[in-house]
Design a protein around this nucleic acid. Structure first.
Length: 731
DNA sequence: CGGCGGTACTG
DNA sequence: CAGTAC
DNA sequence: GCCG
């Protein structure tokens, strides 16, 4: 809003006289112009360093997931208004299962993690299910004759280990008490066994969030969770009932996960949780109220709430009004904690059926995937060789982004990626970005989890979200994520140059909330102060035309010092972007040593441009003998907008590697480097090296020998990657 | 269950 | 060295 | 959060 406008105005003003003075383009390296500096001097009267800070919302460009800290997932649990409704204690009629739950809980009372050794063999509820892993979905996923399967069992359901062995240990980690949204609820699953990996996962999760798992249908059951492959009729038939007792909630398998996403019980009546053939009782607005005294459920809006509206209403007190009312009855409950139901191993937290099947298929047919072509099949990925997994092996024209078949899904996923970026969950962020990149390449619309899973880079979790996005138009988890105040503050602070996670947390912990607070009260480094003074400047995009002007000035000045210098504009500019986050200039001189280049730039160019008020701040300049960079800010003659500008000093022998490195994009770079390391080589901004010896852990014993550094194309060749022009390096 | 890019500058 | 940036 |  503000920033773009002012910069546009400035841009316009500047254009008038400035273009005439410096009609520079990237290729006009030759013309030497003595008038340049004089002209610069003429316009020195501009105002510099306007200290006014306005908090723009400009978001960090997701191009470079910063930070090297591995941050454990932070809890995004906005404080919701708790329902005052007390949860009533469970009835006296406790099933054996409940008793077990309680015992387990008591045992686990001192910790939230609990392991139980179970030595009873797993019961087989289904005669139709064999324990043999197969490529296909488990049999109970298909047509199951309701009458014959699932004999009313008197046994306690159990989490069955995949291999069906005896003694198994599983960690069921109860979430912290105030998060047990299912506390006091009694779930009955249909089918009610854990033989199905996906369902098992749902059961485990439900228990972790406070539910009890009922082994058989009884009058304590509050919720029936029906797998998607079954309809209501089958349920009734199996239960041998004409109709269900009043007050029992019947929902499909999406329900539990959605509640956990929201950290609360969500409306059970929406179409999204509807079980085929089931008509929710009464008006859809009234939620089935389980047995008297059940946790109440407060509905979301019937219609999906517009995301914007939710976000805007984020200010504290209004939350009770619309969408965020929560009835966390569970959190107030005094009832005994349902505990660990059962032992056994949870092999992989989020593993789902297809995952399992595929992995097992791979395990049993090690040949199928990697080697020679053809046998292929309908397995998961269709990669003929392992190198295809690297982003850098695929070209994307970059065109098929915003109007491809999955355009909308991509937008929503991108928001999630941004969210994780802000939260500093670098690995999730990375996963989302890779998934986005993979999805963008799809030529058909992906609308089901199964289809999504087949795409390399998309796993079960993201696949589920894709399906939700397609079905419901957006992802509710996002609405939730955006509300956390501390997160907003951290995000705001971390957009200051020189403020990372650590500093931002310190500031936030000190109670600072606004940029203004920092200016007045916080101890800031010099760079951070500059970052604050030019918060809006540094967080706004630089139009392509302006990039060229900054580059032009540097180029002219440098050529004034020595004609043989070459300046390349890097970064997203080189990839053809219409605007850039900053200005990256790569400086080299054929035949010159890095020392010579450094001396010229540091001792002559920078002082010169600083003197003429083009360079207005030095944020980081090389001090070491092998230093190769200068980071700072620049400002056009009749503009007041400071831009981040980086000068990168490169000897000719390393030009190719530097071009590669500084052109990006980020994912492309990582991919190239990863590929190099898989091939026993090492790629950095200096060159491609081979025969790198690494210590046990990671320390390099030898730098390796240089393979190529000068020629960008030859680096591609040496790595076996088909050449891609800069515009096609957008992953 | 561990790995996830590799380097340079500041304080 | 940790933190930050690229 | 994905992959090997």
């Amino acid at each position: 809003m503000i920033a773009p406008q002012t910069s546009r105005d400035a841009e316009a003003k500047k254009k008038i006289g400035f273009d005439a003075l410096y009609a520079l383009d990237n290729e006009s390296d030759e013309a030497e112009d003595d008038g340049l500096l004089a002209s610069l001097q003429k316009v020195q009267g501009k105002t510099l360093g306007d200290p006014t800070i306005s908090l723009s919302r400009s978001r960090r460009t997701p191009g470079r997931p910063p930070g090297s800290l591995v941050r454990s997932k932070s809890n995004i649990i906005p404080a919701l208004s708790l329902s005052t409704q007390q949860h009533q204690k469970p009835r006296n009629t406790k099933s054996p299962l409940e008793l077990l739950n309680e015992l387990s809980a008591a045992a686990a009372a001192t910790s939230t993690s609990n392991s139980i050794v179970k030595d009873t063999p797993t019961l087989q509820h289904h005669n139709t299910v064999t324990g043999v892993p197969s490529l296909e979905k488990p049999a109970d996923d298909g047509k199951m004759p309701p009458s014959s399967a699932l004999p009313a069992s008197s046994a306690i359901p159990m989490i069955k280990n995949k291999k069906g062995k005896g003694k198994q240990v599983v960690d069921i980690k109860l979430v912290p008490e105030d998060q047990r949204i299912f506390q006091g609820l009694h779930f009955y699953f249909f089918p009610n066994s854990d033989t199905h990996p996906g369902r098992r996962q749902r059961i485990i999760k439900a228990i972790e969030y406070g539910a009890s798992w009922q082994d058989k249908f009884n009058d304590t059951v509050t919720h029936i969770i029906v797998d998607r492959d079954y309809d209501f009729e089958q349920l009734l038939k199996y239960l041998k009932l004409k109709e269900l007792p009043a007050g029992i909630v019947v929902v499909n398998e999406n329900y539990t996960a959605t509640c956990m996403d929201f950290y609360k019980l969500v409306d059970t009546s929406t179409i999204e949780f509807r079980v085929k053939g089931y008509e929710p009782p009464a008006s859809s607005a009234t939620i089935a109220q389980p047995n008297p005294s059940q946790a109440s459920e407060v509905s979301l809006q019937l219609k999906p709430v517009k995301r914007k509206a939710v976000v805007l209403s984020s200010q504290v007190t209004s939350e009770a009004s619309l969408n965020l009312v929560s009835s966390s009855a569970a959190s107030l409950s005094n009832s005994p904690a349902p505990g660990v139901l059962d032992p056994q191993q949870v092999p992989n937290k989020d593993e789902d059926e297809l995952d399992t099947a595929i992995r097992q298929a791979k395990e049993s047919h090690p040949l199928a995937s990697d080697d020679e072509d053809d046998v292929e099949g309908h397995k998961r990925r269709k990669t003929n060789n392992w190198q295809d997994k690297f982003q850098c092996m695929h070209k994307h024209t970059g065109k098929s982004g915003d109007q491809g078949p999955n355009a909308h899904t991509l937008v929503v996923l991108q928001e999630l990626a941004d969210h994780y970026d802000q939260i500093r969950d670098q690995w999730r962020c990375k996963s989302y970005r890779q998934a986005i990149s993979a999805l963008r390449k799809q030529t058909t619309k992906i609308s089901t989890k199964e289809a999504a899973m087949r795409v390399y880079g998309i796993g079960s979790s993201i696949a589920e979200k894709i399906e939700e996005i397609v079905r419901t138009t957006h992802l509710r988890k996002l609405d939730f994520a955006k509300l956390d105040e501390r997160q907003q503050i951290l995000n705001r602070f971390m957009k200051i140059y020189g403020v990372g996670l650590h500093a931002a947390e310190n500031f936030a912990s000190a109670g600072y909330k606004t940029i203004d607070d920092l200016l007045q009260k916080a101890e800031l480094t010099d760079n951070q102060r500059i970052g604050i003074d030019h918060y809006d400047d540094f967080n706004s995009r630089v139009p392509r035309a302006e990039v060229e002007k900054h580059a032009g000035i540097v180029k002219k000045a440098l050529k004034g010092l020595d004609k043989n210098y070459i300046v390349n504009t890097m970064g997203s500019y080189r990839r053809g972007a219409q605007d850039s986050g900053d200005i990256d200039l790569l400086i080299t001189k054929p035949g010159a040593s890095i020392d010579e280049i450094r001396t010229t730039v540091m001792d002559r160019l920078v002082p010169l441009l600083t003197k003429h008020k083009f360079l207005v701040a030095a944020l980081a300049q090389t001090s070491q003998a092998d230093g190769t960079k200068w980071h700072g800010a620049s400002c056009l003659p009749d503009s007041s907008t400071w831009r981040r500008i980086d000068l990168l000093l490169v000897p000719e022998e390393e030009l190719g590697a530097a071009l590669l490195y500084f052109t990006g994009n980020d994912i492309f770079n990582r991919s190239m480097r990863l590929l190099a390391s898989k091939k026993g080589m090492r790629l950095n901004q200096r060159g491609l090296y081979k025969d790198v010896l690494r210590d046990y852990g990671r320390e390099k014993l030898s730098e390796g020998t240089l393979v190529e550094g000068k020629d960008e194309r030859k680096i591609f060749e040496a790595l076996g990657v088909p050449w891609r022009p800069p515009e096609h390096r957008i992953c």
